[in-house]
Amino acid sequence: MSKSSPRRPFGRNTGTVTVIEAKVHRSSARNARLAFILTAVIVGLLSAVVAASYMHPILALFTGAAIAVPLGGVAWVLVRIWPVLRVLWWWTPEIGITTLLGAGWVQLANHTPGPVTLVVVALVVGVPAALPASRRALVAWTWCLIVRHRLRVCFAQFIIANQSGSLPIILWAKPTPVGERVWVYLRPGLSLADLEGRLDRIAVACHASAALIERASDGNAAYLRFDIKRREVLTAQVGSPLVDVIDPATPATDRPTPAVPTALDLPDVDVPTITLPAQKKPPATANGSKPAASSSAPEDDISDWI
């Protein structure tokens, strides 16, 4: 539907509010005209055909036109305000939460005396903040909201997908122990491989330590899963459950005491007693395929793949 995209719908940092940029404004006007004509023609023809079975064809044409023009107008308005609608849609969770909180506050303030209001607010704010589990959950979900916007900033700012600049659809997000996981539906012009080259920049934009992208569906290459990592969780030592299945009263196996070697320090070892294992050639020749090249080949790089 929309062929246009504002780079910065709201100039949030500068303080000025540019809802629709000039270029976008022009293409939006063209799209709106197109939408008006298309809708009007299709709706008009359809309704004329239907009306023709009830009345005279010429009357039916007029009826069709009467229905088509208002509907075309609706389409025109929708396309014209589409950028604004899209911004509203992006911020729906925040708008919804703010509205709910505001409405709740107003209701509370209207129906309870002042001290009670304060106590209730203190409880509603304080209890989740005081309980570590709920506090962590709140913070994690807040990060989910933030990360969705940050990802959109990535797509709008440095992952230019196509000429009209349509942005991928950023679906839901959920917290994971290491950070967040966001599902994204790509629009034409992007692919998983394009994004993999920009993982470091995505991580920076999301204030995270690393980002990973995986396909979320085997059947659809456009459906991706972003894993944003901002914590290292694998630091604790993990025990093995096998320790619990054994019988602690096991009789120890009687092993013959091995001959305990002496000469455990450097001065204890005479020079002639050292027998180095026979080592004829540099180990590289174990490869067998390229004995000549491997002795001079650099350790790293592509030669490892020979």
Partner: peptide
């Protein structure tokens, strides 16, 4: 099929000795 970040379970020397004794038994 994709690499997974894991933390390997660790057995201390005495735990290994216990399991090894039991297994030998």
């Amino acid at each position: 099929g994709t690499p997974r970040r894991i933390k390997v379970a660790y057995l201390s020397d005495s735990q290994i000795a216990g399991i090894a004794d039991y297994a030998a038994w």
